[in-house]
Design a protein around this nucleic acid. Sequence first.
DNA 1: AAGAAAGTTGACGTTTGCGTCAAGTTCGAC
DNA 2: GTCGAACTTGACGCAAACGTCAACTTTCTT
Lengths: 135, 135
Amino acid sequence: MNDELLTIRQMCEKFGVTPRTLRFYEQKELLAPLRKGQTRLYTRRDRARLKLVLQGKRFSFTLEEIRRLLDLYHVGDQQYTQYKATYELALKHLAELEAQRAELDRAIADLKEQLAWGARKLAELERLQNAGAAE
Amino acid sequence: MNDELLTIRQMCEKFGVTPRTLRFYEQKELLAPLRKGQTRLYTRRDRARLKLVLQGKRFSFTLEEIRRLLDLYHVGDQQYTQYKATYELALKHLAELEAQRAELDRAIADLKEQLAWGARKLAELERLQNAGAAE
DNA sequence: AAGAAAGTTGACGTTTGCGTCAAGTTCGAC
DNA sequence: GTCGAACTTGACGCAAACGTCAACTTTCTT
C-alpha cells in the first residue's frame, strides 16, 4: 500500500514542489524514478530520498552536498567510515549554522538600536510637522 | 582634516573592499565620487555613504534597497514622510530577519536531533567494527 | 478518431554581487 | 623620454536553483 508509484504531479502535490524541480533533482542524480515509456514513476525510495533532500535544504546543505550524503547512506558496505564522514559533515554544518545565527543576532541587535534612534528622530520630525500645520 | 579626498586604493584599504566593488557600487548609483581627470576621488560624503552601504549589507538589505534608502536620506525636503518610509522599510526588514532567525533555530534544533540519533548509530557501528577486528 | 491533458527534452533566462581578464590611458619617478 | 604603477572602461564569467518557453510525444477521455 505504501509502495504505489506516483506520477510527477502527485509527487509535486505531496511535497509542494514543481515538476521542474523534480526533473532538476533527477538531473543532479538526487532522484532516479522508474520509467513507464516516457513517464516518470516515483517509488517509495524516491519519496524517501526527496524527503531527505528537502530536509537537507532546510539545513542549508547544497544539493551537491546532499547528493554526496545520499550516496553515502545507501552504499551498504564499509558503513562505518562512510557514516562517520556523513556525521562529521553534518556536525560541521551545524557549527556553520550556529555561526550564522550568531551573526544574525548581532545584525538584529544593531538594527534595533538604529531603529530606536530612528524612532526618536521620527517623533521629533512629527512635532515639527504638526507645529507647521497648526499655524 | 576630515575632508581629504581618497583615491580608490585608499578607500579599499579603509573599508576592506576591492576596487571592483567600489566601481560596481558607483555603477549602481550608491556612490558618486569626484573626478580628477580619469581618477576617482572619494569625498567625506562618499565615505559616509559607503559606511551605510556596508551596514545595510549586514542587515541583508539588497544593494537596490540600500540605494533607495540612501536616496531618501539626502533629499532634504519633506523629510517626515520620507524618513518615515525609511523607518518602516527597516522595520519590515527587522521582522524578516527575526523570521529567518526563527527558521534557523528550528533547523538547528532538528539537525541536532538527527545528530543525536546519528551518534548512537555511530557508536553501534563502532562496536561492530571493533568486534570484527578482534577476531 | 480527435482533442485535451499531461508528460517529455532542450535550451536559454533570472537574480545578486562581485571576480577576472583585456586593452587602453595617465601619472609620477628616474 | 620612458618605464612601471595605478587607474580606467568594457565585457564576459560564475554560482545556485530553479523558471520559462518551445516544440513534441503520449495518454486519457469522450
